[in-house]
């Protein structure tokens, strides 16, 4: 189960660069191996052999802890995701809540990294991440309550089964859009890469990180993207359901298409300002998510 997301996430290191290159009229990494796939082991090797530098002014314990948090929380979240009927680590009745809890924990990673680096740019990045979390966490949870209400369960396998015949993306299109936005914010990707913001904060929260610890943030982001795509597949795109092909294949196809859409969004949009993100979250998306939940509940009860 763990192998799947890690493989996809590490392939993304290469895949995102190739896709972005495609969108940007250039080649991307295409020198090493077939299609440049050798770039991946090359990058990993490079990361391994880089000096594992901890700045003398950093808070060492937290500094080391921070990248571990993001990796472990996003990988742990995969345990509740059903990739096929019965193909799930923890078929919990509160799977959806576990996912939400773990993803909230993930935000600590960025905040702590920014704080412990003891660098002004990193600090600003960490602060932005904290502010950003306040902006999206609320509507993120609410946007998927419509789905839970329709399935009558927090169990993700049951949610997938409830979508037989009609995927949630149709009745819950509003919830899908809001959750998609929240997923972008959760993974700190454009247009919500405020905490990183290379043109403003240079690299923000991970400015002081190098070597493997940086690699963990780097791959952690891709694990997050994979997780969010898998989650959207489960919640809105009927999970493993689909004709002819085996369920796992369908699940993977849907997840990969969503991942590509993440890359496309990154290649297209500029970045929001943090106050604009918070305003958007509280003033527009939160009421919309509530409205969506109300209407869904109304329709179910009626």
């Amino acid at each position: 189960m763990l192998l799947g997301p890690i493989t996809i996430a590490s392939l993304l290191v290469w895949g995102e660069r190739r896709l972005l290159a495609l969108f940007q009229e250039r080649h991307g990494p295409n020198r090493i191996g077939i299609l440049g796939l050798g770039q991946l082991p090359a990058d990993i090797l490079k990361m391994f052999f880089k000096q594992d530098w901890i700045p003398p002014f950093a808070d060492k314990f937290v500094f080391v802890l921070a990248p571990a948090i993001i990796m472990s929380t996003s990988l742990l979240s995969f345990m509740v995701i059903p990739a096929a009927p019965g193909f799930v680590v923890l078929d919990s009745e509160i799977g959806l809540l576990i996912f939400l809890a773990l993803s909230s924990l993930g935000a600590y990673s960025v905040v702590l990294a920014g704080w412990s680096s003891n660098n002004k740019y990193a600090l600003l990045g960490g602060l932005r991440a904290a502010g950003q979390m306040l902006g999206y966490e609320v509507f993120m949870g609410l946007s998927i309550m419509g789905v839970a209400a329709r399935a009558g369960s927090f169990n993700l396998s049951k949610i997938v089964e409830s979508q037989t015949g009609c995927w949630n993306i149709l009745p819950q299109i509003l919830g899908f859009v809001i959750f998609y936005i929240a997923a972008l914010a959760e993974t700190h990707r454009t247009p919500f890469d405020l905490a990183e913001a290379e043109s403003e904060l240079v690299a923000g929260f991970h400015a002081e990180y190098s070597g493997l610890k940086f690699g963990m943030f780097f791959v952690g982001e891709y694990v997050g993207v994979t997780l969010m795509s898998a989650m959207m597949t489960v919640l809105f795109l009927g999970g493993w359901q689909g004709p002819l092909l085996p369920p796992v294949v369908w699940f993977t196809i849907k997840t990969c298409l969503l991942i590509c859409s993440f890359v496309l969004v990154r290649g297209t949009l500029p970045r929001l300002r943090y106050d604009q993100l918070i305003v958007m979250g509280w003033k527009y998306l939160l009421p919309l998510a509530l409205f969506n939940l109300l209407v869904t509940a109304g329709v179910i009860l009626w």
């Binding site: 972005l20 969108f23 940007q24 009229e25 250039r26 454009t190 247009p191 890469d193 913001a197 043109s199 990154r266 290649g267 297209t268 949009l269 500029p270 970045r271 929001l272």
Partner: peptide, 16 residues
């Protein structure tokens, strides 16, 4: 300018 605002692609088109 667009890159400063956070969009990463346009700069490639314009340099092309």
């Amino acid at each position: 300018f667009v890159q400063d605002i956070g969009a990463m692609s346009p700069v490639f088109y314009m340099f092309t």
